[in-house]
Amino acid sequence: MIEDSWAGVDLLAAVARGVIELASTDRSSAFRLPYPPSLQLALDQVVAAGLMQGLPVPVGVPGMLSWCRESALVEWPVTLPSGFLTGDARLIHPAAGEPTRTCAELASLGREDALEQKAEALLAGLAGACGMVERFAVCRDFLISRPVILRFDPVELLQPRVAQTWKLVKELYSPVPDRFLSEGLVYRCTGCLLLAKLTTEDGPWCEGDCPLRDRVLEPSHQPEKTLVLPLALRLLLALPGRTEQAIRSQFAEQAELIPLGLGVHRVTGDDGVPRAFQVHAPEQPVPAALRAAGTAARLAGGSLDIVVPDRLVERPGYRQAFDRAVPADARVRLVSVSQFTAPQPTGRPRRMHA
C-alpha cells in the first residue's frame, strides 16, 4: 500500500473529483465516452498504487467506477490516516448511482480545482455582482431555499419582490441532468429540497440523504421546466443552509454575514463576546475538521464554531474524530445545533451582532 497516508488522501480526493466531473456532464449517460481527463489520470494513479504492492486493480474507468460503487474506501489499495473515513464510506451510492456526500467532501480537499473552491468561486462572483453584502445575503438565501426549481414560473420570479434577486442568480441555474428523469418525471425531496430518485434497490433516494421518514418526493410532470444549481452549491451551500436559516430565525436581530467562502456569520452573546459560526452537514468528520481549519485561518482573528445537526454529532466517535483532526493552532470548535441554540444561563435571548 501507499507508504504516505496523506498521499492516499490525495489519491482518493483525485478520484472523487473525477467522479464529480463525470456526474456533472450534460450527456444523457454519465458513463458515456470520452471520460474526463481527471478521471483517467486518477485511474492511472490507483492502478500504479495497486501494482506496486501486487494488489488487485480496476480494469479501466468502468472498473474503477464499479469500485466506487461497490467497495468501501477502506478496501482500496491506499493507506489513509487512522480514522480518516468511516468504514462504509463509498464514492458512488450503490443503489442510486450518484456521487455520495462523502465523495463531495473528499473532492473539496486539496488542489485548486476542489469542489468547495468551485462553490466559493461561484458565490464570490455573485457577491461581486451584488455589490452590497445585504443584497448578497438575500441572493444567498434565495439559493438555499431554491436549490431545485421544480417548475420554473417566470411570472412568479419576475414579481417586484424577487425580480432583482432572480436577475442576479439566474445564471447559476441550468436544466436538470437527463439521468434524473424517470418515465417523464423528475423528483425533488421535500426534506432537503434536493434532487431525488423515486425507485432504487433501497427505496426512494435523495441527494441530502434525509432520514427515510423525511424522504417524501415531489414530482414535476414538466422536467423541461426544472432548473437546478450546480452540485457544489446543492450539497455544500443549500444542504447545510436550511439548518443555518433555522438557526438564524431563532434570534431577534439579523446576523452579520461575512462573505467568506461558503459564508460565515457572526453572533454576539450576552457576555458581549462575538463569535463566528458556520453551519455544515458533513458525513465525514475528519475532512470537515480540515476544511474548517482552513476557513478559520482566513478569518481576521477570533474562533470559529462549526455547527452540525444533532443527528450527526450524536454518531459514535463523530465528535472525537473531528476534535482529533483539528490542527493544534486552529481555533475551531464543533457544536451541535442544540448546543448552539440553547438559552444563555441568564435566560435572556442571545443578541445578534449586525
Rank of each mutant, 00 (worst) to 15 (best):
P175C: 05
P56N: 09
V78Y: 02
S174G: 11
I2W: 01
L299A: 15
G18I: 01
V228W: 10
E3M: 03
V313D: 02
H280Y: 15
D323R: 14
L260F: 12
P223Q: 10
D214G: 10
A42N: 03
D209G: 08
L157T: 00
L41A: 12
L236Q: 02
R111K: 14
P309Y: 04
P147R: 02
L227K: 15
A330D: 03
M52L: 08
S336M: 00
A276E: 03
L43Q: 06
L80S: 11
V337R: 02
V273S: 09
A49R: 08
V279D: 04
G63Y: 01
P58A: 09
S38Q: 10
R213N: 11
R27D: 08
L39A: 13
E75M: 04
L106C: 09
P282Q: 13
L73T: 00
H93G: 15
R298G: 13
A232T: 09
E201Y: 01
A325H: 05
F142C: 03
A124T: 09
A104G: 11
V57I: 11
T25L: 08
Q40M: 09
E183H: 14
Q164M: 09
R146E: 10
C103L: 05
G128M: 07
R311Y: 14
C189E: 04
P58W: 07
F340Y: 13
C192L: 08
S71G: 01
A325G: 09
M52K: 09
I149F: 02
Q320E: 15
V57T: 12
L73S: 00
P274S: 06
L229H: 07
S336P: 06
A137N: 07
A232H: 05
P316N: 10
A296P: 03
I92Y: 08
A255L: 09
P327V: 01
C130T: 05
P175Y: 12
L290V: 15
L123T: 04
A48M: 11
P175L: 03
P316K: 12
E201R: 13
R291F: 11
I258W: 04
D88L: 15
V148C: 06
K118P: 03
I144G: 03
G191Q: 10
A293F: 14
E183L: 12
E244I: 00
G60I: 05
L109M: 11
T25F: 02
T190H: 14
V216P: 06
A114M: 09
S174Q: 13
R234V: 04
L239P: 00
I149V: 12
E224R: 10
A276K: 03
G261V: 05
G87M: 15
S108D: 03
I144P: 02
R275P: 02
V78A: 02
R333C: 00
F180T: 01
G317L: 09
D26C: 07
M352A: 14
V313T: 05
S24C: 12
A124F: 01
P316D: 05
Q278S: 13
T102Q: 06
E224L: 07
L212G: 04
V46A: 09
V335H: 00
L91H: 05
F152G: 13
V46T: 06
E98D: 13
I247R: 02
V15K: 01
L290R: 07
L212M: 11
M64E: 00
G241W: 00
